[in-house]
Write a protein that binds this DNA or RNA. Structure first.
Lengths: 205, 205
DNA sequence: CTTTCTCCTTAACCCAAATCAAGATTTAAA
DNA sequence: TTTAAATCTTGATTTGGGTTAAGGAGAAAG
């Protein structure tokens, strides 16, 4: 079947989570998958719409954000081999609270809501898989909340550049500022202070 | 069996989530449940420990908080007929980032990690149940994050007193302040302003 | 090569909330 | 009931980050 290889990344991901998954279960699963491509700047989901798909990112980069008083507050970034969705809306079937936007040309492998419910009924491994995906999403939210609660902005910045170095390569700084919950100006100040602190280490004349 | 009725609340909760659950599945499940009672002020989990149980609250009240610079930042409250755990630690088997503390004398019905994994293997409905619990936890985190992102402190306070009125009855205000992410002093001022605003409604002389 | 965006930086000023401090009020204990 | 502890309120001061504004550097487009 044409384009079958587009599901390979997702298949690998499934096999990692559930090594015991049968070929038959995979065949049923893959029969409801669809590929979608987005150009840089296109929306996956808009606030107010019901999010009807869970998407696995083959390649590309997506950001999720709230629009608050005309400005955007970025919640998260997602990239290759990760899932993305306004999963709250997807689960509750209620309008999304956030936007999802492709920041680069992006290829997705998607499952729609009804098909996923069908899989939960028909494929024995699906609930296990669904549990692991929900658990992972939950853990991600925890990490987010932990970092926001525990660190100063400066500390969170230090952590970000060491733990997610690719972010600073692929994302402009004003978006990182939004992700940290501050203005670009404040972010700029913090950066220069941090740099100054580093250079305060004693130097020989 | 002595104390069997202590599992009734949890059984009801399961039946609501998974009406099709068989008696046999319930019997296997209940065989790994244990009851624990805590006095007011006792810890369920301390930061740095691995959280080894998921707990269903029969009665009582629990708070979860981060310790940051000697002060506590409250993440959530949990009460009767809700689950509580440092679920991030429970899932990852890594040290907890937060404390869980009984704020009243509390009775819990618990499952330990190994038993739960066994249930996932042996009880067909368990993965479905586990998925629903993880999804619910995820949705709760989303709500939390949404409100923090979208509302002013004053707005979040208004929402709190209308949607969770029992909180103000059972929890001192300085803890509600911590939950909202502000100091008790700031909370006091916001409250008095909000009260003043209400009394500004035209009055006849 | 020059122009035009887009993005980043720096400075001056402002404000909401933190901090510091002192009382007042409520609750629990003795 | 009196005392002690915990909680809540109010005021004065400080401060981190927001806002506004203006200039600079890079990348893309012409």
């Amino acid at each position: 079947m044409a384009g079958m290889e587009k599901f390979d990344q997702l298949k690998n991901h499934y096999k990692q989570l559930v090594p015991s998954m049968s070929e038959e279960s995979w065949n049923i699963t893959s029969s409801v998958l669809t590929v979608r491509t987005l150009k840089k700047g296109e929306y996956l989901v808009r606030e107010g719409e019901v999010c009807n798909h869970v998407s696995f990112i083959n390649h590309g980069l997506v950001r999720m954000f709230h629009a608050v008083e005309g400005k955007e507050k970025i919640i998260m970034f997602a990239h290759e081999n990760e899932y993305t969705a306004e999963y709250q809306s997807f689960l509750t079937r209620r309008p999304a609270n956030a936007y999802l936007l492709a920041m680069e040309d992006t290829e997705l492998v998607e499952t729609c809501y009804d098909d996923l419910q069908m899989l939960y009924q028909c494929v024995p491994e699906a609930n296990l898989l669904g549990r692991m995906i929900a658990e992972n999403l939950f853990l991600m939210m925890c990490d987010l909340s932990n970092h926001e609660a525990k660190s100063t902005i400066a500390g969170r910045y230090e952590r970000l550049i060491t733990e997610i170095p690719w972010l600073t390569q692929r994302v402009p700084q004003y978006m990182i500022a939004s992700y940290l919950g501050i203005t670009p100006e404040a972010f700029s100040r913090i950066k220069s202070k941090a740099a100054k602190k580093r250079s305060t280490i004693p130097v020989n004349y």
